[in-house]
């Protein structure tokens, strides 16, 4: 279970997160929507441990463990996965090799046996196939020369192979064609279960037709100003943020 209490964070002495309260129980998928610049990506970075953010107050725990006190790789090993809004290119680094190194690093950290090359190849190919991704995606260098949509799909492939317990998807649907959108949603839905929870950051109700969230939250100016069921997303789609933001102010 992810529990965030009154979390505040600065970048360069500027407050970006302004007291976030959020609980995502195991087995649930929560959507986060909100205007550009409201702090959605910042929240995902703070939770996953990116440098450059000063946490000035509050707590964030995952299954009781203090997330904010852990190195990024330890959070990953604990099961936290971030699908980046802007996936990063790693020139010369083979995608399959990267993913296997990552998986085995996590497994080592958890005291599990490492996967050998053959077992990994089998696993990664099966996942690529399930997500209708060509095998050669695994052979290419990490995100180098990938189209915008391919990069997003690659994030989902990584998620499928790493099998996180908590996934944060930061606008993974942006830039995807309709078919890819369904594939990505399938990828998330396949992980659904009592030991998986997710925070899905999106600007579009459309994704939520495929990944039906348990809760929808609206983030504005670094604070959650409204929470509701899936119907809240429809409401936002129809009327925009203005009314809710004005109400909260």
């Amino acid at each position: 279970m992810l529990e965030i209490k009154n979390l505040t964070a600065n970048i360069d002495n500027k407050t970006i997160l302004n007291g976030i309260d959020l609980v995502v129980p195991d087995g649930e998928i929560h959507a986060i929507m909100g205007p550009n610049g409201s702090g959605k990506s910042t929240l995902s970075y703070v939770l996953s441990g990116r440098e450059g953010y000063d946490v000035t107050g509050g707590t964030a725990t995952f299954d009781g463990a203090d997330l904010l006190d852990m190195e990024p790789e330890a959070r990953a090993a604990a099961g936290l996965f971030l699908a980046f809004q802007y996936p990063v290119e790693l020139p010369g680094v083979n995608n399959a090799n990267f993913l296997r190194t990552a998986l085995n690093a996590q497994r080592r950290a958890r005291g599990e046996a490492e996967l050998d090359a053959v077992a990994f190849l089998k696993l990664s190919r099966a996942e690529a196939k399930r997500l209708s991704m060509p095998d050669d995606m695994l052979k290419r260098n990490v995100n180098v020369g990938f189209s915008g949509g391919e990069k997003k799909r690659n994030e989902v492939l990584q998620m499928a192979v790493l099998r996180p317990r908590l996934a944060i998807l930061d606008e993974t649907d942006s830039g995807l064609d309709i078919d890819a959108l369904k594939i990505v949603a399938d990828g998330v839905n396949a992980l659904r279960g009592p030991n998986f929870s997710a925070l899905v950051i999106t600007h579009y109700q459309r994704l939520l037709d495929y990944i039906v969230p348990d809760r929808v939250h609206v983030l504005a100016s670094g604070r959650i100003i409204r929470s509701g069921g899936p119907e809240l997303a429809h409401q936002l789609e129809a009327h925009g943020y203005a009314a809710i933001v004005a109400e909260a102010a």
Binding site: E73, V88, E89, L90, V93, T101, A102, A109, N141
Partner: peptide
């Protein structure tokens, strides 16, 4: 780049393994 290192670490690699991987790619 810092974002390359963070990307690797978010996937579970230690800082040193990340540097090794990026340098080997280079």
């Amino acid at each position: 780049a810092d974002d390359q290192l963070f990307y690797c670490r978010q996937r579970g690699l230690s800082q040193e393994d990340a540097v090794g991987l990026i340098v080997n790619g280079f």
